[in-house]
Structures are given as structure tokens and as C-alpha cells.
Design a protein around this nucleic acid. Sequence first.
DNA 1: GTCAAAATTTTACGCGCGTAAAGAAATAAT
DNA 2: ATTATTTCTTTACGCGCGTAAAATTTTGAC
Lengths: 343, 343
Amino acid sequence: MSEPQIKNMEDFAAISGISRPTISKYFNDPASVRKTTRARIEAALEQYSYRPNIYAINQNRRQTKNIGLVVPNLTDPFFAGIARTIEGMILKAGFNPLLLSSHAGPEQEIANLDSLRAIKPAGVLLAPLGRASDVARVAEFADEVPTVLFDANLEGVGEAFFGSDNDQSIELIVEYLCRTGEPPVFFEMKTPINPNAYKRRTAYIATMERLDQEPHLIQADGEGWDFEEIGFREGTRLIANRLLPTNTVLCSNDRLAIGFLSTAYESGLRVGLGAGSALRVAGHDNHPFSQYTCPSLTTVSQDYDSIGARSVETLLGLIESGRRAKSRDVTLFEGRLIMRGSA
Amino acid sequence: MSEPQIKNMEDFAAISGISRPTISKYFNDPASVRKTTRARIEAALEQYSYRPNIYAINQNRRQTKNIGLVVPNLTDPFFAGIARTIEGMILKAGFNPLLLSSHAGPEQEIANLDSLRAIKPAGVLLAPLGRASDVARVAEFADEVPTVLFDANLEGVGEAFFGSDNDQSIELIVEYLCRTGEPPVFFEMKTPINPNAYKRRTAYIATMERLDQEPHLIQADGEGWDFEEIGFREGTRLIANRLLPTNTVLCSNDRLAIGFLSTAYESGLRVGLGAGSALRVAGHDNHPFSQYTCPSLTTVSQDYDSIGARSVETLLGLIESGRRAKSRDVTLFEGRLIMRGSA
DNA sequence: GTCAAAATTTTACGCGCGTAAAGAAATAAT
DNA sequence: ATTATTTCTTTACGCGCGTAAAATTTTGAC
């Protein structure tokens, strides 16, 4: 491909017959140089493969092209999917995404932010852990680096927040469940990590009251992110001791529902809306796996295309302007009912 | 915390009363300086928080401390889990892991390797796509950067390979299935992406013949990584048309089994080993969700702690020595039978 | 062909750090 | 206390690139 080894921009400038500053300009924005010189550069580029040293670039630029993307837990395919979508959007905008998972731990979340500090990102998209987060330190970070929050809101932290409208989505599914059968109990964790869970609880109670139904909360013990296990364990207890006041269970999220369905199956309880069914179960999130539960899970899908797109847009806008947000906007997107076999 | 702003090592050297080269030495290895000076540096470090600029460091060091970690598909929680484990090992060794997902596409796999080239990693751990991989270009990369393969082997590529012993693990589960009921048919994709799938097919046939049983392959059409969907679709066809020659199905991997179990449930077929069951289903991999299928899935767990540990060890050894491997070792680890409800 | 505008070249400096070499200072050994 | 050894300081250069300013060339409009 290349006989003389090109080791830096100087070499490449010499061999391509263009001055180094122009080469530099080209790499920062190929459209910023005259068409003819651009063609010459690209011709040379094909002959002698050369790429600028990214470390030298980032040392000298006022800003890197890096954008941090932090999700609470990559092991959860729900977040893995979101991360992938957002990564694509960042790439398309000409930035370099850096994906980090907090592995469900606040220490790791802070460690991730520290790692990001080291690479001096132009901005960060953060889906925080929520209640478990070290809010003060996250806020400190968001003060240094333009940060947009998504998925879980930490009040006042970051330039903006984009998430789901839990009021709307819970109302949607509660109304559906009431319309098609017995009103649901709400199955959740006693002390959820995620702030969305609190909103869903409140939304459930509000909707039930509006529909003149009595709300029933069933709260599982257990901490952490092992939702399936908690759903299974607590579900087993509920079923064995016949603690369910109705035959309809709305789970705070799909992963709890997956665990619950698993124990319902083992107990021989038939789940679904048919005549022969003893139980209806619904979830929330449209988890990738919810399609393959037994029966497939009725749930609400969050509009993560919009959440991702708007988060990225907003962050890029801030980066481009070089300013911080005038006000901290909170934008919520509506969910969509996914009717399947379980309810 | 700090009154005068420390903007570089020079400033920090001045304010801490230590010369800059010694500070540099300290950051490259805190143990390389005298205990008393180390204490002085660390005292100053607490007073005036300072961290060396990573871009300047990497521009000047002969080698970075970066290690690339490429997995085929982070959306698959199986790989997300492995990635997390390996990330931890890399961190513990004092290196900086960079996690990339090929998103099940060969273009993305090559793009990931290109991204890694840009950051000049000391080494790379690569779980390739397999059949879909652009082997020539992956090999080219592995020629430039010390690369250890794991999970899926590409013959001759990289310094070493660590994976699962499919012969052993398939023999294990086939024997178990034969011992406890009817001999299994093997349910797989016609043209699998993953080389392990081919090995499993061969191992199945070999074991069946050794046990004087007739092997039956059932091969689903369909490409890509949407295994659950393929398992569901093909399973539906098999069940509806009564194409299963026995009541026992061994799936090439758990995700196929998850889809298959889903359609079996919908068809009203009772799966399990009890008397009332019409079907036994087993998988392979011990996928995180296999515990929550209905019924829970009997499968084989791969020894990913060992695979990860040995992969990391080997790569670090190569990096430390600065040499390439004398020979390309292939090391396979044994699987462990996970007996659950489905078979 | 003339001329203003746009693009490029020349020259030069700076970014923050690794690292080498030689001399000075601190430590350990006798 | 003297010497040998280790560690530190001083000085200096280089890494590969961004970027600024002035001089020069090219381009496009007339």
C-alpha cells in the first residue's frame, strides 16, 4: 500500500504535496477545503494510508469529540438495546460514543464518571441508577461536563431529562386491565432503586381511585437489580399463601413479571385472559424477552427511540453552542400498550 | 480544594516541591519512588487534586494501557455478562478496558477493530462473530495488535484461543437425556453463524452413534442473531406438523430453546420430564434467562470464569513480554450440566 | 484581463507529558 | 566518618498535532 512509512501529518503533507495546516483542516472537516485539494488529499490517502494520531489531536483540540454514555446495567438487555440505539445516533452525528455500565452499583457509577473525566468528553448522556446514586457527586460531575439525563431523573441534576411518562403509561394499562377484567393489584419492590418505580406506584393509585377501584399494593422485599429472582421468590410466597386479592397482577416492570410468570407456571396456575385462566399478569417496559414468556407478556413499551433521539439532540445542541441550558427541561414521552397473551 | 489551579504536571511539581520527572515516575508506578517522596506527592495530591492528561501520556508512551474487548452482541445478556467479568479482570490488572459490541454484523466488527487501531491498544480480546466475520481483515488486525480470541475460534487468527469444549458438553447432555428418557433430536439452525454450533452438531452425531442411537438433525431456516424468533417460528412449524421423531429436543443453544419453549407453551404441550409431559427440551449455554423459562431450562453451563481468566492472563503475558506467542494454543474448558425442569 | 475574495502556504509557537543524560543529594553499608 | 549506591534534580529534547498570523497563490465574477 505504501512504500515510505507515513508516521505523522508532516510526512503525509510532504508526500501529498499539500501543506500540513491544510491537511489538518481537512481532517477536522473535509468540506472546509477546496474541492480540488480535497480530491488530491483523498487520492494520497488511498495510496498511503494515514490516520492522524488521536491522542495528539485530543491534546490540542479545545474539545474532544467524545461523548460518554452511561447506563445502569448492561446486563439488562433493555439497557443494552437502548445503549445500542443511542450509540448509533452519536456516531451519526460525528462523535465518538463511549459506553460504560454502572453494573448496578453506585461506586461503579462514580468510577465511570471519573473515567469519563479523564477523557475530557464534550458531553455525557447518563441514565443514573436512581435512588442508589451518589447524587451529590453525580451533580458535581454534571457541573463540570455538559450532562443530559435520561431514563431515571435525579432532580435538578444535568441540563435536561428525557424519560417516560409513567402517569400516562400506567393509566393506559390500568384502564385496559380494568376494562377487560378484574382491577389489578400492583406488584412492586418495597424500596425500589429506580425513581420510575415510585412514579408508577403513585400513578397506579391515582388511576385506580379515579376509576373508583380500591388500590392494592403488594411490595416485595429485596434489594438490587435481580428483579426476576425477586419476582419469582415473592410470587411464590403470594401464590402459596393465596395473598392475591384479585386475579390480575400489574408488575412494576417486566423483569418482575418474568419472575412472577415463572413461579405461576411452576404452581400450575394458568395465566392469560381466556376462560380457563386463573390469573392475568401484565408488566411494563416491553423488555426484549417479554415476547417469549409463557404466556407472552402484556406490557407497555416505552418510546425509547424518541427518548434517545431527543437526549442526543439536546446534548449536541449544548455542545455546539458551548453554553449551558437556560432552564432544565423535563420531557416525558408516552408509552404504547402491547397486548399479548398474559392479560 | 485547591486555590492555585494546577493545569499540568509542571505546576503540580512546583507546588509539591518535587521535580517533574519524579512526578512523572510516580504516576507511572507509585512504588518506583522513595517512600518519603511518595508520601510527599500523595499529600500534595490530596491538597491539590491533579491528574495527568491522558492524551499527553498516551502520545508519549511507547504503549498505552488500553485493552480492547470486542464481543459479538451486547444485546445478548450472555455476552454482556461475560464482558462484565472480563472487564473486571482487565481493570484489576491495571489496564483500561474498552468494550465494543459488533452488534451481530461483520461491518461493525471491522469498524470496531478500526476504532481500536485508533487508540493503539496494548492488546485486544476478541470474541468474533464467527462464520460471518471478515476473517482476512480480522487476521490483518491480529497481525498488527496482540490479539487473543475467545468464545468463537477463527482458525489461525490471533495468538491463542480459549473456548468451550463442545464435544464434552454435548456428550454430557446427550448422555443425560438418553439415560433419562428418549434420545434427543438436535434442533439447530441450518447455517449457523457461530462455529461452536457446527462443533455441537458434530458432537451430537458422534455421541448418538457411540450410544447406538440414530441421530436426527432438525435444521431451521433463518439467518442472523434473532435466535428466539427462529426457535419460535420453526418450533411452531415442527409442532403443528408433528415433525418431531422423538419427544426430546436438544437445542443448539438456550436462545433457540427459549423460543421453542414459548411456542410449545402456546401449543398447549406440557414440557418436562414428569409423566404428564409430552416433550423434553434442553439447551446449551446456561443463558441468564434460562432459569426463568417455563419450565426452567435444563442446559449446560460454559465455564466462562476460566475462559475469561485464561484469556486475560494470556494477553497480559504477551503484552508484558513484548513478544508474540511461540505457538497458537487452543484451550477448551469443560461444561457443567444444569438440571432443571424442562428435561 | 482585472481585481477582490477565498484558499493555501509559510512560519512559528504551544499543548502536556515521556524520557534521556549528567550532576547533586540523600541513603545505606562499611 | 567514608564510600558506594540509590534516588532525585536539572536540563533538554521530542512526540504529533492545533492553530494563529502574514504572505502568497488560486479562484470566480465582471
